[in-house]
Amino acid sequence: MEVRRSDEDAVSVEAAAETLRMLSGVMGSVPDGEWTPSLVKAVEALGDDAPGCARMRRYLGEHAGEDDFVQALAVDWTLAFRGVSPAHGPRPPYAGAWLGDDGTGVGVMLAVNSCYVAEGLGTSGSKPNRLDYLGVELEFMAHLLSKAAAGGEGAREAEASLSSFIDRYVLSWLPRYRAQVEERCKTEFWKGFLELTESAVREVRAALSGDDGRASDA
């Protein structure tokens, strides 16, 4: 059956998709002198009510004027999102690294990629990250949300695919990863950022469960 959405519902779903794209972009770009000001503006625009945002704003308020501010953010970004120092930092945010039996999870990575291919999003190998990288997964979730927001015959299928993807390949490991970031990373900024990320994913999943009553059958 075709899923019908009011204009207000569609705007709300697309806004959630844009939030996921923003989170994906932040996660995929190492902070530098040119990029960090836009990051600060993005955090300020979110306000303090969203989970994790007060922590991020507090960190920015306390450290943004320091000479090594950008470097400190970049070092902790590398520790949190690149997994270059397993002895000191968290396991990297690859679904396969958390769900695979061998610590690498190539099979999981291929399974994640099969979800992309099923949506016509085959990869060319040009992306700088693994296919099961959290930032890439968020980008895929945003794609499915936009498809659901458009309504029509493909909306329900997009919602079902997104629900399954979140359950199998995101929330099945994201809380454990975030716990390691809380324990091993230094800056409150990235801890707050991942608190916001997990909250955003959970909100999308709750909406897909029908808690907000968005979708209605024709």
Rank of each mutant, 00 (worst) to 15 (best):
L79F: 08
L194M: 08
L73W: 00
G152S: 14
D68R: 04
W35T: 15
G25V: 03
F81S: 09
A72K: 13
H88G: 04
G100I: 02
P51G: 04
G65S: 14
P90H: 05
G120Q: 06
W190L: 07
S29G: 04
A142L: 00
P31F: 07
D48A: 15
G25H: 01
L138D: 03
D211Q: 10
E119G: 12
T123S: 14
W98I: 00
S161L: 04
G192R: 14
A64R: 13
D32G: 14
L145R: 03
A64G: 05
A160Q: 06
V3F: 06
F165I: 07
L134Y: 08
L162A: 15
E14Y: 00
Y169H: 14
L79Y: 09
E159V: 03
E198F: 00
V30T: 11
L73M: 06
L144A: 10
S163W: 00
N113L: 12
M22K: 05
G125K: 02
G25Y: 03
W98V: 07
L194V: 12
V75W: 09
I166L: 14
A155Y: 06
G151R: 08
R176S: 13
L73G: 07
E62G: 11
Y116H: 10
F189A: 10
G103T: 10
L39D: 08
V117A: 15
A74E: 12
E183V: 09
M141D: 11
E8V: 07
D32K: 01
R184S: 02
A97F: 13
C115Y: 14
R202Y: 03
D32R: 06
G100N: 10
T19I: 03
K41M: 08
A64C: 01
D9F: 01
L23T: 07
N129C: 05
K41V: 10
L208P: 00
S124T: 07
A215S: 15
G52R: 01
P175T: 01
P31T: 04
S146E: 02
A207C: 08
V108S: 12
H143T: 01
S124Q: 03
M141C: 15
F189I: 09
E157M: 02
D32L: 02
